[in-house]
Amino acid sequence: MVRFLGFGAGLIFVIALLVGALMPREAAVEDPIKKIHLYPEAARWQQDGPLGMGVFGTYDRAQLQRGFQVYKEVCSACHGLERIAFRNLGALGFSEAEVKALAKAREVPSLDPQTGEPSTRPALPSDHWPSPYPNEVAARAANNNALPPDLSLIIKARPDGKRYVHSLLTGYDKPVPQGFEITEGLHFNPYFHSVAIAMARPLNDEQVTYADGTKATVDQMSMDVTAFLHWASEPELERRRQIGVATLIFLGILTVLAWLTYRKVWAGVAH
């Protein structure tokens, strides 16, 4: 009896497997977001180098300063830059006095030396750029439960970072496809992975006034702030490239000398 029941259970299991294998499967429902989502548009910066050969590219200091201005006047209201100290801004071409002035204009968390209670003080060049919010809870409370990411490494943290950030900042003009609805509190941007982003349009024409007279269009400001954020994520980029080129030249010369030495040592040896 037990064997009969075991055989019957096995037979049912085999039949179920055959039915599942032979029955046609329903067509997979295509994700509508894939039809709407766009990949970053092509764009180039000076640090990309000629013909995209980044090893020879250097940062445009004027563009970096413009990008820092966009970050300071627009982006810093919501996004931190915690890995950059004020003294690092000297690499953008700011003088020591300008760096001190930029630091002094910002308040950083501190403790009252008299009472030990939390307080603030003007920043020093050695301080890192302060976050606009005291903690994550406050950041989410101020942004409809969305957490604005720190921008220190945003270029390296996103695939095709510079082009992604540039496309995202300029992608708010794209019309919402017919039949696609955006949840209240979100904004349509086809370059964002879900095409619905919590960040409202951050840039508008002439939103900042550049000291060098450059016209502050959305595209220009986006290119500039993206270049600055690239520098923020890789401030040692130029130095690394210089070391890399010098190393390749050294290895090339060493290879030639080694080959000539080999020829000299074995010149009289018959093959």
Results as ranks from 00 to 15, higher is better:
Gly6Ser: 13
Gly6Asn: 12
Gly10Ala: 14
Phe13Asp: 01
Ile15Trp: 07
Val19Gln: 03
Ala21His: 08
Ala21Arg: 08
Met23Val: 14
Glu26Gln: 15
Ala28Cys: 00
Ala28Thr: 08
Lys35Phe: 04
Pro40Cys: 09
Glu41Gly: 15
Gly54Leu: 01
Gly57His: 05
Asp60Cys: 07
Leu64Cys: 06
Val70Trp: 10
Glu73Pro: 00
Val74Met: 06
Ala85Ser: 09
Phe86Thr: 01
Arg87Cys: 02
Leu89Tyr: 08
Phe94Cys: 07
Ser95Arg: 09
Glu96Thr: 13
Glu96Ala: 15
Glu98Trp: 11
Ala101Tyr: 01
Ala101Cys: 05
Ala101Lys: 14
Arg106Ala: 13
Pro122Trp: 01
Pro122Ile: 01
Ser126Ala: 14
Ala139Met: 01
Ala141Asn: 12
Pro148Asp: 09
Leu151Val: 11
Ile154Arg: 11
Ile155Asp: 06
Lys162Ala: 14
Arg163Thr: 08
Ser167Gln: 10
Leu168Gly: 03
Thr170Ile: 08
Gly179Asn: 09
Glu184Arg: 14
Gly185Cys: 11
Asn189Gly: 12
Tyr191Val: 02
Ala196Glu: 15
Ile197Arg: 00
Ala198Tyr: 02
Leu203Ile: 05
Asn204Val: 11
Asp205Arg: 13
Tyr210Glu: 08
Gly213Met: 06
Asp224Thr: 10
Thr226Tyr: 05
Ala227Lys: 00
Phe228Leu: 10
His230Lys: 11
Trp231Arg: 09
Arg239Pro: 00
Ile243His: 03
Leu248Gly: 07
Phe250His: 02
Gly252Cys: 04
Ile253Ser: 08
Tyr262Ala: 11
Tyr262Val: 03
Trp266Phe: 15
Trp266Cys: 05
Val269Met: 12
